[in-house]
Design a protein around this nucleic acid. Structure first.
Lengths: 238, 238
DNA sequence: TATAATTTGTCCGTATGTATA
DNA sequence: TTATACATACGGACAAATTAT
């Protein structure tokens, strides 16, 4: 492929856009594979690869012998876990603000060293931020970055886009992310930051972002207001 | 295919078993695609399809030019959302018990009719159960079944396996499931059932199970003890 | 540092099976 | 029963990233 991105990706994006634009609303189905082959002038495998991705992301449900149906996701504002790539991506039409609560250099204690698979005493950055969507407190983010991987951070970077800064280095592409989802009692400080009452529940995400070479980039905790944040997990059985 | 299941599924299951048995621990990698082609005597596409599934389920991370690495999932007892198919499947080595709390015939009010996409007044079954793992309360399950789809239920079925009973009918296979994940304040009754203190947080799953023909089989709420249940979401970036 | 070998990623074409309408 | 439409499977070719030479 000489083009910037693979063909199936182009097909996927076009079909996604057509779905979002309501272009298949009358039938509630996609065109058939054979039609899509003619429309995009690519092979059946390429169409199927694009559909596979859209299926995993929750847009369509292919039914053998029948067609590829639109999946009506009445998400009610819930965040699709398959499309969880940062606040700006999740709220493209909202104003995202970041308040820096704490920023310091630190080092790994025994617990953090185990989690981050580094030596005890390894230098780390500690960052605590409050992120607001359209002026309302949305999530408290506590992050630990391995200084061997991220040798430099400053306030400017932290309040704009840490990940954008780091991954601008082609050697520091994110390979995969593990997320643990749980409920907890919110701390008094976080309750104040999010504007909820003391001892409220919180929806907590514990994230480990791994680079393509297997090293852990960061470990972070996202503490959400339980009344506003809901997650959506779409599963297919076939 | 004349065999009971497709080839890629057989390949997938064998590789999963080998991973679980620690057979690739020394290298931390799977055999190469070419090796697997020779081992299983199937085409490259079939190997790649099996690997695709294993990748989505979080077992492996394929890296172009390098190999297919085992993903070390330090799950810490968290439940992988990709493998969320009922308690007996999730805890194969534990004793699962079910206490029936309430069982009655009911009908859809306006809210339920909207959720379940049925007429107001449609007949429903209402089931509330407490499920225990190895003798300890694990989850409170509240379910609404559409009586048009599930015309008959009894105490015997409810305390063993509702889904097993329903899906024994080949016309009632589950097509897909939508899950909303959120935190909430636990109700007093559920706190008592789960043995946690009043006003504790709860990790709540709201599920909609759809049949392959698009009808909604059931709507259910799973209320989990927040200290014992954690969910795991594995994402790949490529 | 440059080149070659290795290994996964993309893409094509074809044939046949299986579920649905 | 027939036609339609997605599912499985095979084989081949070349691209791109990584690793070894």
């Amino acid at each position: 492929m000489k083009s910037a991105q693979p063909k199936y990706k182009t097909v996927e994006e076009k079909i996604e856009k057509d779905i979002r634009d309501g272009r298949f609303k009358s039938t509630n189905k996609l065109p058939t594979e054979d039609d899509l082959i003619k429309i995009f002038k690519v092979s059946r495998n390429t169409i199927r690869k694009a559909i596979d991705v859209l299926t995993h992301r929750g847009f369509v449900i292919p039914v053998q012998g029948s067609g590829m149906f639109l999946r009506d996701v009445s998400s009610e504002g819930a965040i699709n876990l398959e499309d969880f790539h940062g606040l700006t991506h999740m709220f493209p039409n909202s104003k995202i603000e970041t308040q820096l609560i704490e920023f310091k250099e630190s080092s790994a204690d025994e617990k953090l060293a185990t989690i981050m698979r580094c030596e005890v005493g390894s230098p780390l950055y500690y960052v605590k931020r409050l992120r607001l969507v359209d002026g309302l407190p949305y999530v408290v983010e506590i992050s630990y970055f391995n200084k061997e991987i991220v040798p430099y951070l400053n306030r400017e970077i932290i309040t704009t886009s840490i990940y954008g800064f780091i991954t601008s280095d082609p050697k520091k592409q994110i390979g995969y992310v593990d997320r643990i989802i749980r409920a907890d009692v919110i701390s008094d400080e976080d309750a104040m930051l999010l504007g909820v009452s003391k001892n409220s529940p919180a929806l907590v995400l514990e994230n480990k972002a791994m680079l393509r070479d297997g090293r852990m980039l960061d470990y972070s905790l996202n503490i959400h207001n339980y009344t506003t944040t809901k997650l959506l997990k779409l599963s297919n059985f076939m």
